[in-house]
């Protein structure tokens, strides 16, 4: 029983550390540097900023 509890607590600590590791990794990889580019990363030339996309299939004449 004690062994199980120790194992559980160790795994819990490990998971907490993965969250910290994730944050550190993100900071090091520059994920927090260019926030404006980050917000725009889901847009591209085909679905650009300024064009609503609840229009499917895409209007043919705009190719």
């Amino acid at each position: 029983m004690t062994r199980l509890l120790v194992a559980i607590i160790l795994v819990a600590v490990l998971f907490g550390l993965t969250a910290v590791a994730g944050l550190v990794w993100a900071i090091r990889r520059g994920q927090f540097r260019n926030l404006t580019a980050g917000a725009r990363s889901i847009f591209d030339n085909e679905e650009p900023v300024g064009r609503p996309t609840d229009a499917f299939p895409p209007p043919r004449e705009e190719e």
Partner: peptide, 19 residues
Amino acid sequence: YYLIPKVIGRPIHSYYLSL
């Protein structure tokens, strides 16, 4: 966070706040 910007065609107002 993905669907609102995608549907209206506008990036999230404050990406900093989202993080």
